[in-house]
Design a protein around this nucleic acid. Structure first.
Lengths: 261, 261
DNA sequence: CTCCGTATTCCATAAAATGGAATTAAAAAA
DNA sequence: TTTTTTAATTCCATTTTATGGAATACGGAG
């Protein structure tokens, strides 16, 4: 998928490809054949890598459901969380946005070419859109957060991303093909925030603002979702900059957390 | 470290070795030299693997502190958590043990040859031992949970573990050398629960019971810690079986969670 | 400037990973 | 039950990739 270019580390890339093919299906198990197909690797290769990953506890296999991520992945995540405790750091701003706006607020994490919903906080407004739940994984470029993240990347990365997700978008998101993405990205770059006008589920609109790490890489995005009527242009112009500001504040908090031991 | 034996996957093992060498220092960054020394791999090899891991977001580097786990590790953990949500599942029993006994209760996760504290819940008794915090990592065999986990493994694994941790124990835990471990393991196997008689910090005692997955592999352990005077033999005989029972109940919950999608 | 510890690059060699094809196991159909 | 189909696993000669010694570059400290 990603064109691994460090020389002499092919199998490292392949190992990670396999892990992510499994991760891509979230909690549900996947078959060897599926991984084979998704990664483009040969059957014996995938099988060999899986055996090794299983021996190390990174992957487990259930007879009924196939392969899924194992306890060592979980442990790695727990440890990464010590430094990288995005959930804790982002929880406060997300809650505040939800409280202030009355709508549902989110923090989504970038994961490969996808957006992974980490936090959801509902606001007080009685009609809530339930498209994004914690754990929901959408291709980048889809949804408010996804648009913001994609727009925050280089054209080159955008290109790679659209290529990587083309198939999935074609299958699940008829309103998120290549031609639909580009103008939204341009708009987002101009405004600073991304606008989702119901392309995932009709009537469910959203706004997102990207969050970068200290090196400028896109980490994730803050976003707000509401029904169409609550996100008309005037409110977009109100919420957008508010989200962007919150994203900036969050960024400095994250940078600080990453700096100290 | 672990003698990877699946043929044709050397670099997968090496990649994971590097990741774990970094994870082993928890949130703090490590140097290339450190990883080199810890894994026994050559400098160019480690360097190459790190470049690849960084390109994939599994590892990050800060100029001041060196390498640490990156956002993709975090994301993997979040996803593994969907199925493997040990924290959520174990939270209730841990809280109940703390409430019932009045002492601090813990759930520790097995991570390689270490015990990683996931959950700590304080009881009502006013003197608390603060040796184990969430995130604390101890060699297996050290502490109540660690003894229980180690004792639950095969003699062969115990051997590997002691070898792997010998250096660390020698450096940090003078009361946890090989000769100290073996009788404790024997005791634990006889009783069903492990007893830590202050070998980490004098006066801080503990009891632990191992938790296995559906395939019998050790996942982690429940434990209780208190000051010495609160864990004398009579109370050990009271708490031990209680912990074991809680561990059994937890196991069935975990197995059920792992079975369904 | 030099020394020293650390990180990075090079490249000929050795070793490991590869994948086509064969085999086996597991489901599905007859 | 047996047959058919599909998926998983093993084999092994071939080729590519990973390897690590040595050389080089970097970054303080004196």
């Amino acid at each position: 998928m990603s064109s691994g270019h460090i020389q002499g580390a092919q199998s490292t890339y392949r190992t990670l490809q396999v892990l992510r093919a499994i991760a891509g299906e979230l909690g549900s198990g996947v078959s060897l054949a599926y991984i084979t197909q998704r990664t483009g690797l040969s059957k014996p290769t995938v099988h060999r890598l899986l055996q090794a990953l299983m021996a190390e506890g990174m992957v487990e296999k259930s007879d009924e459901e196939g392969y899924f991520l194992g306890p060592e992945c979980y442990a790695l995540g727990v440890i990464a969380n010590q430094r990288y405790g995005l959930r804790e750091i982002a929880a406060t701003p997300v809650a505040r946005i939800a409280a202030d706006t009355g709508d549902s607020a989110f923090f989504c994490l970038r994961s490969e070419w996808h957006s992974l919903c980490l936090i959801r906080e509902d606001g007080s407004y009685p009609i809530k859109t339930h498209v994004l739940q914690p754990g929901t994984r959408l291709p980048l470029g889809v949804g408010g957060a996804g648009i913001a993240m994609l727009a925050a990347m280089s054209d080159d990365e955008v290109e790679q991303c659209l290529a990587a997700n083309a198939e999935e978008c074609a299958a699940h998101f008829p309103n998120d093909q290549r031609a639909d993405h580009l103008p939204r990205i341009a708009e987002c770059r101009a405004l600073g925030y991304g606008i989702n006008r119901g392309s995932v589920v009709a009537g469910s609109w959203g706004i997102g603002a990207a969050v970068r790490d200290r090196h400028g890489r896109v980490l994730g995005a803050l976003s707000v979702a509401a029904i169409e009527s609550r996100l008309q242009p005037q409110r977009q112009r109100e919420l957008g900059p508010r989200l962007v500001e919150a994203a900036r504040t969050l960024e400095t908090k994250i940078h600080r957390a990453q700096r100290m031991r």
